[in-house]
Design a protein around this nucleic acid. Structure first.
Lengths: 211, 211
DNA sequence: TGCAAATGTGAGGATTATTCATATTTTGAA
DNA sequence: TTCAAAATATGAATAATCCTCACATTTGCA
């Protein structure tokens, strides 16, 4: 009843061949767009390579010309999301210089993420499946570390006397807790989700500001 | 290259037929034991139904006599773990009556869980894949709620003046954060993992005791 | 004993992911 | 412009896997 999704080795799935011509670059975009639409409709697990090819208007062989396997497509989409959000997060935290500013920026960041998770089925699907796929897990971990570093930088400015290593651990943990809180929040009802996100915010800020 | 793992509907995978004879009960045990061993060796994703049957010394058809599909086997193992751990957690929190006691019990509980995650590849694998499988996700959520309730009961005793709804939210969130922290801790190096777990403990207790 | 229910079996059906031999298009140097 | 090499396109065929089902065997029990 099935196809399987490759062996369990978590190789970073890089394009089998980078599209060098204008034509192929456009086709790869179409493939990713098709995959994105299908994931939004049915989830990445139910996404079929044949459907992706058909919807992108390319042959199945062309798909495999640029993506070594199914997971690579999901990975490529995930990478785009992380790149975008990192830029956003970096900007939001760049010029925070006092506790109040951190509270403000962090709170907004959480809201943005929460809304994004609620509104973006693709993102939701991809980050949900994160744990099952080694390459995705590593991407998310790297992303999380990068984001935590932005937060660490702020903390070091706000609390110069504190142990830097401890600040790093705190920032990383708080950030990961945030991602977990989001996943939890979207998997329960909206009201409870809102409450949980609010509770997370309080908890995180208390920890970050060491109050 | 593959088989697929069932449609994405998250039906609770209950035995197709409960084994009623001694013989079949023993065989089902062998099936679960075989599955457990294979998951420990290669992960549940790489576990093949044919291998499970072979190692259990039964035919593939017998497997499907008692388990409607592959996920049902994983689910059955997961259910056992949750039943066991709930009993353990309930016992640990049952007679907590002051802040110090909570600190003690909670800290021990976290340690036990952490060690369990580190030592039990099966448990680790199952809870990692949790997000990808609807039935597993629901099982984990229900388990988490049940455990959070034990914690809530303690909090209500310790802080009778507090808003009960807020305590429930706090307990649930803290518990889920704990599971996330565990997953994170075992996916990074041992040293960093230890630091993260310690940091989580501090954060959680601060929140639980509202200090 | 004998019959119905429970259980056991494994070859084959059904899906999918992925490959590969071959055809077509583009590029860039002569 | 010409043309060979590189890049790209194609989809039928392959391979791997889950799961079904028609039929065989065993067990419980009146």
């Amino acid at each position: 009843m099935e196809g399987r999704v490759g062996s369990q080795d978590g190789q970073i799935a890089s394009p089998r061949r980078a599209p060098s011509q204008q034509r192929s670059r456009e086709r790869v975009e179409r493939m990713l767009a098709a995959a994105s639409a299908l994931i939004a409709e049915q989830g990445s697990d139910a996404m079929r390579m044949g459907e992706v090819a058909e919807r992108a208007g390319v042959s199945i062989g062309s798909l495999y010309q640029f993506f070594p396997d199914k997971r690579a497509i999901v990975w490529a989409l995930a990478e785009r999301y992380t790149a975008e959000s990192q830029a956003c997060i970096s900007a939001a935290l760049a010029d925070v210089s006092d506790a109040e500013g951190l509270g403000q920026a962090f709170s907004e960041l959480v809201d943005i993420y929460y809304r994004l998770f609620l509104a973006e089925p693709v993102m939701r699907d991809i980050w949900s499946g994160t744990q099952a796929d080694k390459a995705l897990r590593e991407l998310e971990l790297a992303d999380s570390r990068a984001n935590a570093e932005f937060l660490t930088a702020v903390l070091k400015r706000l609390r110069p006397a504190a142990d830097p290593a401890a600040l790093e651990t705190t920032a990383f943990l708080v950030w990961q807790m945030g991602e977990a809180a989001m996943r939890l929040a979207i998997s329960v009802g909206r009201e409870e989700g809102d409450r949980l996100v609010a509770a997370y915010k309080r908890m995180a800020l208390r920890e970050l500001l060491d109050q």
